[in-house]
């Protein structure tokens, strides 16, 4: 095994306690930066600065998503919020009032109202969170191994059904019976490359999201698409109005 492969195999094992520590440190740092930026977003008198602080907040959210292992949501966060919405914000700000320095009109007198709305939101969302996860428990330690056995493996150069490849494990079992095989068996059964064959080993949230969107939530998804189309056409009509 080459050096690179050695390193690469180490990368996969994101279970050590060191990684936990690193993740905690990263979370702490990101959270601190996010809190500071969120605070500055509402306190700075410079509109462009406020938008840029908002970028940091949103990037922090994306980083947290990635930290939690859901890179799809993280990437979407970057693509939609940073790549599109904030850029449009900045675009609008710079086109209309591209003024350097502080803007007095940003200093709003309705701070009391803003604080009230903020507190209200905090209470509502806090209640929702507590209500939902009140009895949830965090489990520590090794997650339960999930074994996925392909129906066909390659022994030598010949594709062979699994049942024939490991007769001693599967002997005498029916189609619906559950079996538990050891990691060593699994590794020997399914070589590394085999596991990377498209579709063979996708346990990630990616596939689950796709599945749920296009089966369970297909109607809302399409409804949203039509809504966006209507908004698009409306925008064109408004802009084209002679």
């Amino acid at each position: 095994m080459t050096l690179l492969a050695q390193v690469a195999s180490d990368f996969n094992e994101l279970t050590s306690s060191e990684v936990d520590i690193a993740q905690n440190i990263a979370f702490g740092m990101i959270a601190a930066v996010m809190l500071f930026s969120a605070f500055r977003t509402v306190t700075t008198a410079n509109v462009v600065h406020a938008a840029l602080y908002l970028v940091i907040v949103l990037a922090g959210v994306a980083a947290l998503f990635i930290l939690l292992g859901s890179d799809f949501v993280g990437a979407t966060q970057v693509l939609v919020y940073i790549g599109a919405i904030i850029v449009l914000f900045l675009f609008g700000i710079m086109l209309t009032k591209a003024r350097l320095g502080d803007d007095e009109s940003v200093e709003s007198e309705r701070r009391g109202m803003g604080a009230l709305v903020g507190i209200l939101l905090l209470v509502v969302m806090g209640y929702a969170l507590v209500d939902t996860f009140e009895n949830a428990e965090l489990t520590f330690g090794e997650p339960e191994p999930i074994a996925y056995v392909p129906t066909e493996v390659t022994v030598g150069d010949v594709p062979t059904p699994v049942l024939e490849a490991l007769p001693d494990v599967f002997a005498g079992l029916g189609d619906d019976d559950e079996v538990t095989i050891s990691q060593a068996d699994f590794d020997s059964l399914v070589p590394e490359v085999q596991r990377r064959v498209p579709g063979a080993e996708v346990f990630g949230n990616n596939k689950q999201i796709a599945d749920s969107i296009f089966s369970q939530y297909i109607v809302p998804f399409e409804a949203v698409s039509v809504l966006l189309l209507a908004a698009l056409i409306g925008a064109i009509v408004v802009a084209r109005k002679e």
């Binding site: 086109l95 209309t96 009032k97 591209a98 802009a239 084209r240």
Partner: peptide, 8 residues
């Protein structure tokens, strides 16, 4: 399109 929008 953007000509109608009032810009500075």
């Amino acid at each position: 399109v953007n000509v109608e929008i009032e810009t500075e």
